[in-house]
Amino acid sequence: MAMSAVARDTVFALRRQIAKIEGTLPERLEAPVPGATGSDVTIVRRGLAVASPDAFLHTGIEGLDAALGGGLPKAALNEIHGLETRDAGAVAGFALSLASLILKQKQGLPVLWIGTAEIFREAGFPYASGLHALFGIEPDQLLFSEAPKLLDALWVAEEAARMPAFAAVILEIRGSPRLLDLTATRRLHARAQAAGRPVLLLRQAGEAEPTAAPVRLIVSAAPAASRKTLAGPLAGSIGRPAFTVDIGKSRTALPGQFTLEWNPDEHAFAERTENSVAVVPLPLRGTDPAAASGAVLAFPPVASPAAISPTTGDQPSRQQRPAHRSPRRTG
Protein backbone atom coordinates (compact mmCIF):
# COMPACT_ATOMS: atom_id res chain seq x y z
CA MET A 1 0.00 0.00 0.00
CA ALA A 2 2.89 2.35 0.74
CA MET A 3 4.33 1.80 -2.72
CA SER A 4 0.92 2.48 -4.30
CA ALA A 5 0.62 5.79 -2.44
CA VAL A 6 4.10 6.83 -3.54
CA ALA A 7 3.34 5.89 -7.15
CA ARG A 8 0.07 7.82 -7.04
CA ASP A 9 1.79 10.93 -5.69
CA THR A 10 4.44 10.62 -8.39
CA VAL A 11 1.80 10.43 -11.12
CA PHE A 12 -0.01 13.47 -9.73
CA ALA A 13 3.24 15.43 -9.58
CA LEU A 14 4.04 14.52 -13.19
CA ARG A 15 0.57 15.54 -14.33
CA ARG A 16 0.91 18.86 -12.53
CA GLN A 17 4.30 19.48 -14.13
CA ILE A 18 2.94 18.67 -17.61
CA ALA A 19 -0.04 20.98 -17.07
CA LYS A 20 2.32 23.73 -15.94
CA ILE A 21 4.43 23.33 -19.08
CA GLU A 22 1.38 23.30 -21.37
CA GLY A 23 -0.12 26.30 -19.62
CA THR A 24 -3.32 24.51 -18.55
CA LEU A 25 -2.62 24.47 -14.83
CA PRO A 26 -5.72 25.56 -12.86
CA GLU A 27 -5.38 29.02 -11.35
CA ARG A 28 -6.92 30.34 -8.15
CA LEU A 29 -8.46 33.78 -8.45
CA GLU A 30 -9.61 35.65 -5.36
CA ALA A 31 -12.91 37.35 -6.21
CA PRO A 32 -15.08 39.06 -3.60
CA VAL A 33 -18.76 38.19 -3.77
CA PRO A 34 -21.26 40.89 -2.75
CA GLY A 35 -22.91 40.02 0.54
CA ALA A 36 -20.40 37.36 1.47
CA THR A 37 -18.89 37.41 4.92
CA GLY A 38 -15.49 36.25 6.03
CA SER A 39 -12.90 35.25 3.48
CA ASP A 40 -13.35 35.75 -0.22
CA VAL A 41 -14.73 33.00 -2.39
CA THR A 42 -12.10 31.15 -4.43
CA ILE A 43 -12.89 30.68 -8.11
CA VAL A 44 -10.94 28.02 -9.95
CA ARG A 45 -10.46 28.44 -13.68
CA ARG A 46 -8.21 26.80 -16.19
CA GLY A 47 -5.33 28.81 -17.52
CA LEU A 48 -6.73 28.63 -21.05
CA ALA A 49 -9.98 30.32 -20.05
CA VAL A 50 -8.37 33.27 -18.26
CA ALA A 51 -6.04 34.18 -21.15
CA SER A 52 -6.43 37.71 -22.44
CA PRO A 53 -8.18 38.09 -25.81
CA ASP A 54 -5.24 40.21 -26.98
CA ALA A 55 -3.00 37.17 -26.61
CA PHE A 56 -4.48 35.59 -29.75
CA LEU A 57 -4.45 36.42 -33.43
CA HIS A 58 -8.07 36.16 -34.50
CA THR A 59 -8.66 34.73 -37.95
CA GLY A 60 -12.17 36.20 -38.09
CA ILE A 61 -13.75 32.73 -38.37
CA GLU A 62 -15.68 32.11 -35.16
CA GLY A 63 -15.68 28.32 -35.47
CA LEU A 64 -11.93 28.13 -36.11
CA ASP A 65 -11.05 30.61 -33.37
CA ALA A 66 -13.27 28.79 -30.88
CA ALA A 67 -11.72 25.42 -31.76
CA LEU A 68 -8.25 26.91 -31.23
CA GLY A 69 -9.22 28.35 -27.86
CA GLY A 70 -9.39 31.97 -29.02
CA GLY A 71 -7.23 31.95 -32.15
CA LEU A 72 -3.56 31.58 -32.93
CA PRO A 73 -1.40 32.52 -29.92
CA LYS A 74 0.68 35.57 -30.74
CA ALA A 75 3.60 34.89 -28.42
CA ALA A 76 4.18 31.31 -29.52
CA LEU A 77 5.45 29.00 -32.21
CA ASN A 78 2.67 28.06 -34.65
CA GLU A 79 3.11 25.25 -37.16
CA ILE A 80 1.54 25.33 -40.63
CA HIS A 81 1.92 21.94 -42.23
CA GLY A 82 1.73 20.97 -45.91
CA LEU A 83 1.49 17.24 -46.44
CA GLU A 84 2.84 17.24 -50.01
CA THR A 85 5.16 19.34 -52.11
CA ARG A 86 2.28 20.53 -54.28
CA ASP A 87 0.76 22.16 -51.17
CA ALA A 88 3.69 24.58 -50.90
CA GLY A 89 1.77 27.33 -52.70
CA ALA A 90 -1.27 26.95 -50.45
CA VAL A 91 0.88 26.95 -47.30
CA ALA A 92 2.75 30.06 -48.45
CA GLY A 93 -0.51 31.81 -49.35
CA PHE A 94 -2.02 30.99 -45.97
CA ALA A 95 1.12 32.25 -44.22
CA LEU A 96 0.94 35.51 -46.19
CA SER A 97 -2.71 35.85 -45.17
CA LEU A 98 -1.74 35.54 -41.53
CA ALA A 99 1.11 38.00 -42.06
CA SER A 100 -1.42 40.46 -43.49
CA LEU A 101 -3.53 40.15 -40.34
CA ILE A 102 -0.43 40.61 -38.17
CA LEU A 103 0.72 43.72 -40.04
CA LYS A 104 -2.68 45.32 -39.49
CA GLN A 105 -1.89 45.36 -35.77
CA LYS A 106 1.84 46.10 -36.03
CA GLN A 107 2.12 48.67 -38.77
CA GLY A 108 5.56 49.85 -39.77
CA LEU A 109 7.33 46.59 -38.88
CA PRO A 110 8.46 44.07 -41.51
CA VAL A 111 8.07 40.29 -41.55
CA LEU A 112 11.19 38.15 -41.91
CA TRP A 113 10.89 34.99 -44.04
CA ILE A 114 13.73 32.50 -43.45
CA GLY A 115 14.51 29.45 -45.54
CA THR A 116 17.27 27.42 -47.09
CA ALA A 117 18.44 27.52 -50.68
CA GLU A 118 16.76 24.14 -51.22
CA ILE A 119 13.32 25.28 -50.10
CA PHE A 120 13.42 28.50 -52.10
CA ARG A 121 14.61 26.63 -55.18
CA GLU A 122 11.80 24.08 -54.81
CA ALA A 123 8.90 26.31 -53.74
CA GLY A 124 10.07 29.69 -55.06
CA PHE A 125 9.58 33.19 -53.67
CA PRO A 126 6.29 35.08 -53.32
CA TYR A 127 5.54 37.33 -56.27
CA ALA A 128 6.43 40.85 -55.13
CA SER A 129 3.98 42.61 -57.44
CA GLY A 130 1.06 40.61 -56.05
CA LEU A 131 1.77 41.18 -52.38
CA HIS A 132 0.01 44.53 -52.22
CA ALA A 133 -2.87 43.57 -54.50
CA LEU A 134 -3.77 40.34 -52.70
CA PHE A 135 -2.57 40.83 -49.13
CA GLY A 136 -2.00 44.54 -48.68
CA ILE A 137 1.69 43.92 -47.95
CA GLU A 138 4.23 46.33 -49.36
CA PRO A 139 7.32 44.67 -50.90
CA ASP A 140 9.61 46.34 -48.36
CA GLN A 141 7.56 44.84 -45.51
CA LEU A 142 8.58 41.29 -46.42
CA LEU A 143 12.26 40.47 -45.98
CA PHE A 144 13.90 37.18 -47.00
CA SER A 145 16.90 35.43 -45.50
CA GLU A 146 18.31 32.55 -47.56
CA ALA A 147 20.59 30.32 -45.51
CA PRO A 148 22.93 27.77 -47.10
CA LYS A 149 22.15 25.09 -44.50
CA LEU A 150 19.33 24.23 -42.13
CA LEU A 151 21.56 24.82 -39.11
CA ASP A 152 22.14 28.39 -40.28
CA ALA A 153 18.42 28.91 -40.87
CA LEU A 154 17.60 27.76 -37.34
CA TRP A 155 20.21 30.11 -35.89
CA VAL A 156 18.84 33.07 -37.88
CA ALA A 157 15.29 32.21 -36.76
CA GLU A 158 16.27 32.06 -33.09
CA GLU A 159 18.09 35.37 -33.26
CA ALA A 160 15.31 37.09 -35.22
CA ALA A 161 12.57 35.76 -32.94
CA ARG A 162 13.81 37.88 -30.06
CA MET A 163 14.39 41.07 -32.05
CA PRO A 164 11.69 43.77 -31.63
CA ALA A 165 12.32 45.02 -35.18
CA PHE A 166 10.08 42.34 -36.75
CA ALA A 167 6.33 41.93 -36.54
CA ALA A 168 6.64 38.17 -37.10
CA VAL A 169 9.16 35.55 -38.18
CA ILE A 170 8.43 32.83 -40.74
CA LEU A 171 10.69 29.77 -40.94
CA GLU A 172 10.13 27.46 -43.92
CA ILE A 173 11.47 23.91 -43.67
CA ARG A 174 11.25 21.06 -46.15
CA GLY A 175 10.76 17.45 -45.08
CA SER A 176 11.46 16.10 -41.61
CA PRO A 177 15.11 16.94 -40.85
CA ARG A 178 16.73 15.59 -37.71
CA LEU A 179 17.93 19.05 -36.68
CA LEU A 180 14.34 20.23 -36.29
CA ASP A 181 13.69 18.13 -33.20
CA LEU A 182 11.72 18.85 -30.05
CA THR A 183 14.64 20.72 -28.51
CA ALA A 184 14.98 23.09 -31.48
CA THR A 185 11.26 23.88 -31.50
CA ARG A 186 11.33 24.48 -27.75
CA ARG A 187 14.02 27.12 -28.24
CA LEU A 188 11.97 28.82 -30.95
CA HIS A 189 8.85 28.69 -28.80
CA ALA A 190 10.70 30.13 -25.80
CA ARG A 191 12.10 33.00 -27.90
CA ALA A 192 8.62 33.76 -29.25
CA GLN A 193 7.14 33.79 -25.75
CA ALA A 194 9.85 36.08 -24.41
CA ALA A 195 9.55 38.54 -27.32
CA GLY A 196 5.74 38.42 -27.47
CA ARG A 197 5.56 37.92 -31.24
CA PRO A 198 4.53 34.92 -33.38
CA VAL A 199 6.90 32.57 -35.13
CA LEU A 200 5.33 30.64 -38.01
CA LEU A 201 6.95 27.31 -38.83
CA LEU A 202 6.09 26.22 -42.37
CA ARG A 203 6.57 22.49 -42.88
CA GLN A 204 6.64 21.38 -46.53
CA ALA A 205 6.10 17.68 -47.31
CA GLY A 206 7.03 16.51 -43.82
CA GLU A 207 5.65 14.03 -41.35
CA ALA A 208 3.75 15.21 -38.28
CA GLU A 209 6.29 15.00 -35.46
CA PRO A 210 6.24 16.12 -31.82
CA THR A 211 7.04 19.82 -31.60
CA ALA A 212 6.70 22.52 -28.96
CA ALA A 213 4.20 24.44 -31.10
CA PRO A 214 0.82 24.58 -29.30
CA VAL A 215 -1.01 24.83 -32.65
CA ARG A 216 -0.55 22.81 -35.82
CA LEU A 217 -2.69 23.59 -38.87
CA ILE A 218 -2.65 21.30 -41.92
CA VAL A 219 -3.28 23.46 -44.98
CA SER A 220 -3.99 22.44 -48.56
CA ALA A 221 -5.52 24.09 -51.58
CA ALA A 222 -9.31 24.03 -51.94
CA PRO A 223 -11.20 24.36 -55.24
CA ALA A 224 -11.92 27.98 -55.96
CA ALA A 225 -15.56 28.95 -56.34
CA SER A 226 -16.88 30.86 -59.33
CA ARG A 227 -16.80 34.63 -59.32
CA LYS A 228 -19.95 36.26 -58.05
CA THR A 229 -21.66 38.82 -60.25
CA LEU A 230 -24.95 40.69 -60.06
CA ALA A 231 -26.47 38.03 -62.29
CA GLY A 232 -25.11 35.20 -60.15
CA PRO A 233 -22.00 33.00 -60.30
CA LEU A 234 -20.02 33.38 -63.50
CA ALA A 235 -19.62 29.92 -64.99
CA GLY A 236 -16.07 28.90 -65.85
CA SER A 237 -14.45 31.67 -63.83
CA ILE A 238 -11.99 31.41 -60.94
CA GLY A 239 -12.91 33.20 -57.73
CA ARG A 240 -11.03 33.97 -54.56
CA PRO A 241 -8.16 31.82 -53.22
CA ALA A 242 -9.45 29.05 -50.97
CA PHE A 243 -7.73 26.90 -48.34
CA THR A 244 -8.70 23.69 -46.59
CA VAL A 245 -7.54 24.00 -42.98
CA ASP A 246 -7.46 20.99 -40.65
CA ILE A 247 -6.63 21.33 -36.97
CA GLY A 248 -3.91 18.81 -36.28
CA LYS A 249 -2.99 20.09 -32.82
CA SER A 250 -4.30 22.70 -30.42
CA ARG A 251 -4.51 23.39 -26.72
CA THR A 252 -8.20 22.52 -26.70
CA ALA A 253 -7.62 19.22 -28.56
CA LEU A 254 -10.74 19.89 -30.63
CA PRO A 255 -10.65 18.57 -34.21
CA GLY A 256 -12.11 20.48 -37.10
CA GLN A 257 -11.91 21.15 -40.81
CA PHE A 258 -12.68 24.50 -42.40
CA THR A 259 -12.73 25.85 -45.94
CA LEU A 260 -11.55 29.45 -45.90
CA GLU A 261 -11.55 32.02 -48.66
CA TRP A 262 -9.23 35.00 -48.65
CA ASN A 263 -10.85 38.30 -49.58
CA PRO A 264 -8.16 40.36 -51.38
CA ASP A 265 -10.27 43.52 -51.15
CA GLU A 266 -10.93 43.48 -47.41
CA HIS A 267 -7.79 41.45 -46.54
CA ALA A 268 -9.79 39.07 -44.35
CA PHE A 269 -10.87 35.44 -44.23
CA ALA A 270 -14.39 34.22 -44.96
CA GLU A 271 -15.70 30.73 -44.33
CA ARG A 272 -17.23 28.92 -47.25
CA THR A 273 -19.98 26.40 -46.68
CA GLU A 274 -19.90 23.72 -49.29
CA ASN A 275 -23.15 22.81 -51.02
CA SER A 276 -24.42 19.38 -50.12
CA VAL A 277 -24.15 16.96 -53.05
CA ALA A 278 -25.45 13.40 -53.04
CA VAL A 279 -22.52 11.02 -53.28
CA VAL A 280 -24.50 7.76 -52.95
CA PRO A 281 -27.34 6.40 -55.12
CA LEU A 282 -30.87 7.29 -54.11
CA PRO A 283 -33.15 4.63 -52.59
CA LEU A 284 -34.89 2.21 -54.92
CA ARG A 285 -38.27 3.80 -54.24
CA GLY A 286 -36.93 7.24 -55.00
CA THR A 287 -36.40 8.88 -58.35
CA ASP A 288 -33.08 9.79 -59.87
CA PRO A 289 -32.47 13.49 -60.42
CA ALA A 290 -32.68 14.72 -63.98
CA ALA A 291 -29.40 14.93 -65.79
CA ALA A 292 -28.00 18.40 -66.30
CA SER A 293 -28.47 19.81 -69.76
CA GLY A 294 -25.35 20.01 -71.88
CA ALA A 295 -24.22 21.09 -75.28
CA VAL A 296 -25.83 19.29 -78.27
CA LEU A 297 -23.54 18.41 -81.15
CA ALA A 298 -24.73 17.33 -84.61
CA PHE A 299 -23.01 14.37 -86.26
CA PRO A 300 -23.62 12.91 -89.72
CA PRO A 301 -25.69 9.73 -89.76
CA VAL A 302 -23.70 6.54 -89.45
CA ALA A 303 -24.56 3.61 -91.65
CA SER A 304 -25.46 0.30 -90.07
CA PRO A 305 -22.81 -2.44 -89.94
CA ALA A 306 -24.79 -4.53 -92.44
CA ALA A 307 -24.60 -1.78 -95.02
CA ILE A 308 -20.80 -1.79 -94.97
CA SER A 309 -19.45 -4.21 -97.55
CA PRO A 310 -16.68 -6.42 -96.23
CA THR A 311 -14.22 -5.47 -98.92
CA THR A 312 -10.50 -5.37 -98.65
CA GLY A 313 -10.45 -1.61 -98.70
CA ASP A 314 -12.57 -1.48 -95.55
CA GLN A 315 -10.07 -3.50 -93.54
CA PRO A 316 -7.63 -1.53 -91.39
CA SER A 317 -4.14 -1.16 -92.76
CA ARG A 318 -1.10 -2.61 -91.05
CA GLN A 319 -0.40 0.68 -89.30
CA GLN A 320 -4.02 0.94 -88.08
CA ARG A 321 -4.29 -2.49 -86.52
CA PRO A 322 -4.80 -2.62 -82.74
CA ALA A 323 -1.63 -2.56 -80.68
CA HIS A 324 -2.41 -5.82 -78.89
CA ARG A 325 -2.23 -7.67 -82.24
CA SER A 326 1.23 -6.39 -83.17
CA PRO A 327 4.23 -8.48 -82.13
CA ARG A 328 5.76 -7.61 -78.77
CA ARG A 329 9.23 -6.07 -78.61
CA THR A 330 11.81 -8.50 -77.29
CA GLY A 331 15.18 -7.82 -75.81
Rank of each mutant, 00 (worst) to 15 (best):
A2K: 09
M3D: 12
M3R: 13
R8H: 09
A13T: 14
Q17N: 11
A19L: 11
K20T: 12
E22I: 05
G23N: 06
T24K: 08
E27D: 07
E27V: 15
V33W: 07
V33T: 13
V41R: 14
R46D: 15
L48Y: 10
V50S: 13
A51S: 10
S52Y: 03
H58S: 15
I61Q: 09
G63L: 03
D65T: 11
A66S: 14
L72C: 14
K74G: 04
L77N: 04
I80H: 12
H81R: 15
L83K: 15
G89C: 09
A90M: 02
A92L: 13
S97C: 13
S100F: 01
I102E: 12
L103G: 13
L103I: 03
K104C: 07
Q105T: 15
G108H: 08
L112N: 11
W113L: 08
E118P: 00
I119Y: 00
R121G: 10
A123K: 02
A123F: 01
A123R: 03
F125T: 15
Y127V: 04
H132S: 06
A133L: 07
A133F: 13
L134H: 06
E138P: 02
Q141R: 13
L142Q: 04
L143I: 14
S145E: 02
A147L: 00
L150E: 08
L151H: 12
L151K: 14
A153D: 12
A153S: 02
A157I: 02
E158M: 08
E158D: 11
E158G: 06
R162Q: 13
P164S: 03
A165C: 09
L171T: 01
S176K: 00
P177R: 09
R178L: 14
L179K: 06
L182P: 00
T183I: 12
T185Y: 02
R187P: 02
L188G: 04
A192D: 06
Q193S: 11
Q193W: 00
V199A: 06
L202H: 04
L202N: 09
A205L: 03
G206A: 06
A213P: 05
R216H: 01
L217Y: 07
L217N: 10
L217G: 11
V219A: 04
V219K: 05
A224K: 09
A225F: 01
A225M: 12
G232I: 00
G239W: 00
V245K: 07
D246R: 15
Q257D: 05
L260W: 00
N263P: 01
N263E: 06
H267V: 10
A268E: 14
A268T: 08
A270W: 01
T273E: 10
E274L: 11
V277L: 11
P281M: 03
P281K: 10
L282S: 15
R285K: 11
G286T: 00
G286L: 03
D288V: 03
P289V: 04
V296T: 05
V296D: 05
L297H: 11
L297T: 14
V302G: 02
A306H: 05
A306S: 15
A307K: 04
I308T: 10
P310M: 09
T311P: 06
G313I: 02
D314C: 04
P316M: 04
P322D: 07
R325E: 14
S326L: 12
R328V: 11
T330C: 05
G331H: 11
